Computed example of a mutant assay.
Amino acid sequence: MAVQRAEKILLPAFDSWLTGSDDANPVGIGVVIGTLDWMFHEYRRTWKQKTAKRLQPLSPGQCRVHETGIKMICEYLLKDGRRLGALRVLSIDTAFADDLFEKLLYKTALQECRRRKGRTPHDREPRDEDRPRRVEHDLTGAPSPVSAEEPI
C-alpha cells in the first residue's frame, strides 16, 4: 500500500514540483478542501488567467508579493498550536479576521524595526518632539493666550 501511494501520489507530485508545472500542488496532497490553504490554492490557480477585474495575468513580482502574504497568513500559529491555514474557511468570521490583521500588522512592524535598528520603538526614552503640544485656535483674530514657544 505504501509503494502504491508513493508511485501514484508522491512521485507525480514531486515531479510536478520539480518541473514547476501548474499541478505542482494538487488538491488532495497536503490541501484539505474547505480550508484556508485550499482557498488560497484555488486563488493561485487564477494568477495566470485574465479575469473581469484583472485584464492581464499577474506579473512574477506580484505573484511573489501575494505568495509572501499568503504564507504569512497560512503559517500563523494559533494559541492551540495549529496553523491558521488548516482552519475551515467557514469558521473565520469578521472579528477573527480583524484581530488577526492587527496581530500580523504589529508583528511585522516590530520585526521591521528590529531589522532596521536592532530594537523596538518602545526601547527608547521619549523625546520632546514626541510629546504632543496643545494647539488653541482663536477664531476672533485676537492673539492666543498660549504661545507656541511656551512648554506645556
Rank of each mutant, 00 (worst) to 15 (best):
E150Y: 06
A142C: 14
E112N: 12
I152Q: 13
K107W: 13
D93F: 09
V27Q: 03
R119P: 05
R115Y: 15
W38T: 02
V146G: 02
S91A: 14
L105T: 15
W47H: 05
L36E: 00
R133Y: 07
Q62W: 03
P12L: 05
P145A: 13
D98N: 15
A109Y: 06
P121D: 01
P121N: 02
T120R: 04
A2T: 11
P57L: 01
T94H: 11
S59Y: 00
L105M: 10
G85D: 04
Y106P: 03
A52M: 07
P121V: 02
I9Y: 14
L77S: 14
A6P: 05
L104R: 04
L110Y: 06
M39P: 00
A13Q: 11
Q4C: 15
H41P: 00
Q62Y: 03
L77E: 07
L110D: 07
P26D: 02
R83P: 00
P26F: 04
R83K: 04
R115D: 15
A97W: 03
E136V: 14
D80Q: 01
L84H: 02
A148I: 12
G61K: 00
K50H: 08
A95T: 11
G34R: 01
T140S: 12
W38R: 05
D98A: 15
L18H: 13
G34H: 03
G61S: 03
T35S: 01
Y76Q: 04
Q49F: 10
A86W: 09
G30V: 07
F96S: 06
T35K: 00
Q111L: 13
R124S: 15
N25V: 10
Y106R: 15
S144F: 05
T140Y: 07
G141M: 06
Y43D: 08
L105Y: 14
I152A: 08
C74A: 14
V135F: 12
R88Q: 12
P121A: 01
H66Q: 11
L11N: 13
T108E: 12
G69N: 05
T108G: 05
T120W: 00
L100V: 06
W47N: 00
P12G: 05
L36N: 00
P132D: 05
A95K: 14
Y76A: 06
L18A: 13
P57S: 02
T46V: 04
V135T: 09
E67P: 00
K79E: 12
D138P: 00
R127S: 10
D98G: 10
Y76P: 00
H41M: 04
